[in-house]
Write a protein that binds this DNA or RNA. Structure first.
Lengths: 303, 303
DNA sequence: CATACCTCCAAGTCCCACTTATACTGGTGC
DNA sequence: GCACCAGTATAAGTGGGACTTGGAGGTATG
């Protein structure tokens, strides 16, 4: 087995024409070069160099080996270069999967910051909700899955989050839920309400997991919500409330980039939070570009 | 510094998708593979593999490295292949330089035998006499120099052969000198003659070194030869003798492939020999093709 | 629930690569 | 002709690293 180290030495010897000169170039002692060449000739099975006293000349086998060495070492250098670029954030692609409608403000901000910080990296964005996004993560279809969870649900049914325990869970943002009532609603002016105050209202719920959570919270408050509509689409929820068809509890972030028409937000008591987290695999968390993107998500949340 | 050994393991891991399977393929234990991959990731500065429990997947950096590894390992294999071909006499070129007119029978026989024994090797032939051929040998313009020497000259003037003492001198053939006299000469019928018998004849001499030797031998016999002609070309010597212009002392080998016209050979007493030797550099003697060619020269001389 | 398979970790052993020191050789100066 | 210099080969010693063995932990599969 020919070793790349030997080829490097051989090339330098061929270039300089001397063991000592090659040793100086390579930063080692002359006997080291001598021994490596001996070992290489041993494994080659034929002399590679002719020592004629004054000068060092290549045999035919030596010439052949040097000829190949150039290409091999160039390939090695290119490989190191490319890997170093990925390791040094001068290259690399991150595939991010976010929950639908969670990418309205947080993700764009993080993407912009990532591009500014590491212009040569590329981040692709796709939408999926757990458990689909987790599946994608495990299948290698993405590096980061952005998801959310409700602490209350996690406490009540830990098995629902069981498949996260071998993942890296990076908390990004905790997002308080606010109430949304039609303009002119009796609570619209109050600016604040307890869940119990909305016990008799028709409710507009969000995604299935949000709906489950809503039921859980309301039951803690002593009532079971009457849910008339449920949709994954937050603008649709706002529209429904605006049309006076019911009330809703929405994460604050979903209202950050829109101004609800015909509806008013009210502070909900007690405080209930949605926790937005970025998920990845332990090994992937150590990939520079992935780590950088996680950092950018966290920074974006801080603003 | 990425090592080829690591790339080989990485490629196998990528191919089989498992450390254990790769270890089996490579003939080592699984921890060995595990450690090598760890070391490679260390030097790469980023994870190359994602362990998801059931399967092993490549990261982007891992994919890049495998992509390069294919070419690098192919280059290494090609290099080993070519060197092994040279070492195994399935390739290789030998440049042989022979003294002029010494290549009439010995060299052709050896070349034919070499081609028969190792058809894939190539031997080129050039003509030059020492010290020119020695210079070519030292300059790297040939691998084998075929030359001859006269033991008497070597004993009388050792400094003439001083520049051979760091060379490999392989005796190939000792070639007795025979006398050549015109047909009808008084000694032609005798079949044998002493040098002294030819003291009064006009002489035809060969190359400068042969001429020097002839003078030396004749002086040992008690006379100084009258040299009328001198030529490097043995057929010319034979022609001159055949034309009755003088007598000559020729190595037996020069008459092996020609039948002198108008001249007769006579045994010369005392016996005087020319020693044909093959010269090469110590390192070159260990090159398989060179060694094989030396052997073929020796075998050719035995016939 | 037991089994089989795979990976990681820790410890021990052995080998190999490099260094230092020294002898030897050839070319070069006075 | 002799000493000097540069370069190479060799020997001995040392340190690191690569592999093995042995064991623990975890995950699919029967």
């Amino acid at each position: 087995m020919i070793e790349a180290r030997h080829l490097r030495v051989l090339r330098e010897v061929a270039r300089t024409g001397s063991f000592s000169a090659a040793a100086r170039e390579l930063g080692c002692t002359q006997p080291a070069v001598s021994q490596q060449m001996k070992a290489l000739e041993q494994s080659a099975g034929t002399p590679l160099l002719v020592r004629t006293g004054r000068e060092m000349r290549l045999t035919q086998a030596g010439e052949a080996l040097v000829r190949h060495a150039v290409g091999i070492l160039a390939g090695l250098t290119a490989a190191e270069e490319e890997v170093a670029a990925i390791a040094g954030l001068r290259a690399g692609r991150v595939r991010l999967v976010s929950f639908p409608s969670g990418s309205s403000t947080l993700v764009p901000t993080a993407l912009a910051a990532m591009r500014a910080a590491h212009p040569r990296t590329r981040v692709s964005l796709d939408e999926a909700e757990p458990p689909r996004s987790i599946e994608m993560l495990r299948n290698g279809d993405c590096e980061i899955a952005l998801a959310f969870r409700y602490p209350e649900v996690r406490a009540a049914a830990p098995e629902a989050c069981a498949d996260w325990d071998d993942l890296v869970v990076r908390p990004v943002l905790t997002d308080r839920l606010v109430g949304l009532v039609p303009e002119g609603h009796r609570l619209a002016a109050a600016g604040s309400a307890a869940f119990g105050d909305l016990a008799d209202e028709p409710w507009i719920a969000g995604c299935p997991r949000c709906r489950t959570h809503l039921v859980e919270v309301c039951e803690s408050a002593g009532f079971t919500p009457r849910i008339d509509f449920a949709t994954d689409d937050y603008p649709a929820v706002i529209g429904l409330v605006g049309a006076g068809l019911g009330v809703a509890a929405l994460p604050e972030l979903t209202l950050a980039s829109v101004r609800p028409k015909g509806a008013r937000t009210v502070r909900l008591e007690p405080a209930v939070h949605r926790e937005i987290v970025a998920l990845t695999l332990p090994d992937l968390a150590r990939v520079p570009a992935v780590g950088a993107m996680l950092d950018q998500l966290e920074s974006a949340a801080a603003r």
